[in-house]
Amino acid sequence: MTALLPPLRLTGATLLRDGEMQKRSLVIEGGVISKGPLPEVDLSGNLILPGIIDLHGDAFERHIAPRPSALFPILAGLRWTDREAAAHGVTTAWLAQCWSWEGGMRGPEFAEEVMAALTAYRPQAHTDLRLQIRCETHMPDTRARMLAAILAHGVDYVVFNDHLPEALEVADRDPHRLALWAERAGETPQTFVARLREARARSRDVPRHLCALAESFDAHDIRYGSHDDPDGDTREYYRLIGARIAEFPTTVSAAKLARAFNDPVLMGAPNVVRGRSQAGNVSAQHLIADGLCDALVSDYHYPCLAEAAWTLVDKGMKTLPEAWAMISTTPAEIMGLVDRGSLEHGKRADFVVVNAESRAIEATVCGGRLTYLAGEAGARLVSAMQRRRMAAE
């Protein structure tokens, strides 16, 4: 982990603070946002925005296995993910790891390996990396095992998803897609179908299983929600269990049900940037225009987080403060992170420096530590630190 930046006053930039863009300085000291006269760094021509908080990203899978048959060590994949996230302004990130009947990289064994690797890597991480468990619902026989792993490794976010109906339909109608799904799990189509049937046989135990998990999550202050709700009935079902966060509802009806109960709705930033879902689901822009989306997540592509905010600004759908809040302030509120998400005094020094003209991220600071540096703003920060070091000598 890099050393803390020295006490500095960043001047000349335009800050996002109190919900508006303000021409004022930002003081950092001891890893937090502070006050007082300190050595200055002129960042004129730049914006200073709160660090991005990503509640769901599975891009780390591609760093571990860029091809199904080309696996790299998990620790190496986490290190590469960490650097990619920092380069795109992310200061807090939940890596979405499956706990699924699918097996392979989405099975319990691999999930436990990822948890252990992240626990080992976290002390040297640049980004505040955390883990989200995507819990397939038809896994009641692994409940005790999953809870033990979650508690042992400090996992604080779980989402329920049920991809079994989709998988069963694929098995019946699409042999090619079934073969690809099986290959990803390291199975033959025949053994993969056997897994599906075993999971389906556990259907009657699922409701009690989910209620037991919810009770444990409540007892340990673990946030939980649901993933890929296909309709309002499904969203209501999970909400009754206590799963308040609606992650990637696939239809307007599911998002409307979440809004009716004031439950937060998360959508993918790539969906916003591309203008549509890669899976053919509801458009995130559509939901945002209708007031049915609260926060954006990287999903599978970190660069899209900041790009999605700018897309909303350019389309006139949001002001910059409103759009940036969807990837910073609101995610912090959803997860109860009171120490970050805005540039208020006393909060963690988590922020990004953005070139106002090119919109390129030129510096990322996480907990008062430089995690990414580039461009003119980067050069000014380096120069200021060199001058300070020379003066101290």
Rank of each mutant, 00 (worst) to 15 (best):
P189H: 05
K256C: 11
N355T: 06
L5G: 05
F217T: 04
L266E: 03
S342Q: 12
G30L: 11
A194R: 15
H88P: 06
E215G: 12
L4H: 15
T2I: 08
H227V: 00
L196M: 14
A379S: 13
G19E: 15
L266P: 02
Q132Y: 01
A194F: 10
R276C: 13
M146V: 09
A144L: 12
R79I: 03
L10T: 12
P7Y: 11
I74N: 00
W101H: 15
G341R: 14
L147D: 09
V353C: 15
G30P: 13
A260W: 07
D58S: 04
E112P: 03
R235L: 13
E113V: 01
W94N: 00
I48W: 06
R276S: 13
D233E: 15
L151N: 02
H301G: 05
R17I: 11
R200K: 14
E166R: 12
G45M: 04
A254F: 08
V170D: 04
A179Q: 11
D233P: 06
M139R: 07
G291D: 04
A93S: 13
D174C: 05
D58K: 01
N271L: 06
F60C: 06
A295Y: 07
L8A: 13
F60D: 00
I245F: 02
G103Q: 11
F72G: 06
L312H: 08
L131W: 01
D350A: 10
T127A: 09
E247P: 07
W310F: 13
